[in-house]
Simulated scan of single mutants.
Amino acid sequence: MKIRVSYGTAIAMGLVRAKILAKPTTAYLMTYWPGHCRNNCAFCVQARESRADLEKLSRVTWPAFELDEVVESLPAGGFARVCLQTVDYPGLVDDTVEILSRLQPLGMPVSVSITPVGRDVLEEFRHLGVDYIGVGLDVASKRLYPVVKDSMYSWDDMWRFTEDVIEVFGEGKALVHLIIGLGETDRELVEAIEAAYSMGAWVSLFAFTPVRGTRLENAKPPSLERYRRIQIAHYLIKEGIMGADGFEFDSNGSLVGFGMSKEELASLLPPEIFSTHGCPGCNRPYYNERPRKEPYNFPVRPDGSYVRRVLDSIL
């Protein structure tokens, strides 16, 4: 049985000999399927109509290895957890259960990102050591969801699945993935973030990355300034400091104010809000970013002066 391993993870495990700028603190794995996903997400390399290299997900390369070799090499990486990404194909659930069964003796916490499955499957995952489930809502806009996702699962299906995950795993254990830059407005992003936290889920933010061969290959990624505004809004909502109705938007739905002064914000915001926000132990280095540019999500905590620099650039 084969499994894909992100390039950085493979280096950390000793499966590939190369240098890495930032060591992944989580082992990122992906189910292996020789064909395309059954869904047709416009941004995804694995999509049904994608012409891109199937060894990629976002801008990361995922070479395939034998599962036995990966399980044997995992302890050498010193990872805090395993994150298993999945592609939707016939037999996905059986393959996922097999992989989890092989990983279980290692005693590592496991996160699984997967399309909607039944509660009985979620219960089985939980018994096999899974403690977090990633929910790939991705599109923060209900009006754009069917166009961008072109999925077997509707907007409502994804939110129902989020509820199921919370009921099986508990509050804070469903991570709703939202990609900034798919055509949504800031207001739609803020409302989706608030909806997730109000039901007991958490949110993990990603930046849209155009990849050649996908339907959105010619679209532009979000500006860093816009991404920083949403990271700030996300923190204020997550911490219960502000609701969606407290933010200021212009006539286009763009976020232009946070309902408080720059000084007040500076006293509230810790620099780690600009780091990767996912499952415990996740730093996701350069998943959306080019190494020579300032990252959307820092793989390590930025220095204490960074908050003031961000606020000076966006307000």
Rank of each mutant, 00 (worst) to 15 (best):
M13E: 12
V211D: 06
L175E: 11
R48E: 05
R48M: 08
E217A: 07
S305L: 08
R226G: 13
Y286V: 02
L205F: 01
G181A: 04
M30L: 11
V82I: 15
G213Q: 14
L268G: 10
S101Q: 14
L128Q: 08
T61P: 02
E194S: 03
R59T: 03
R228H: 14
E248M: 06
A64E: 12
V203N: 12
L216E: 03
T115G: 06
V130G: 01
S154F: 02
L315A: 03
K56C: 06
L189Q: 07
M199I: 15
D186H: 04
D88N: 12
E163A: 13
D186A: 02
S73P: 09
T9N: 15
T115S: 11
D120N: 07
Q104P: 08
V148I: 15
P210Q: 08
Y89A: 13
E239M: 09
N40R: 13
G8M: 05
D303S: 06
C83D: 13
F43G: 07
A10P: 13
R229I: 03
L224Y: 15
K2Q: 14
K220P: 13
E55G: 14
E163C: 09
G281M: 11
P109E: 00
K262I: 06
L67Y: 11
A207D: 00
T26E: 01
M30R: 15
L29P: 14
F298I: 00
S6G: 09
E184S: 10
V16F: 02
V16H: 01
V190M: 03
V87L: 10
C37G: 07
V190W: 00
E264V: 10
D95S: 04
T86S: 12
M108Q: 07
D245W: 03
C41N: 14
L205N: 00
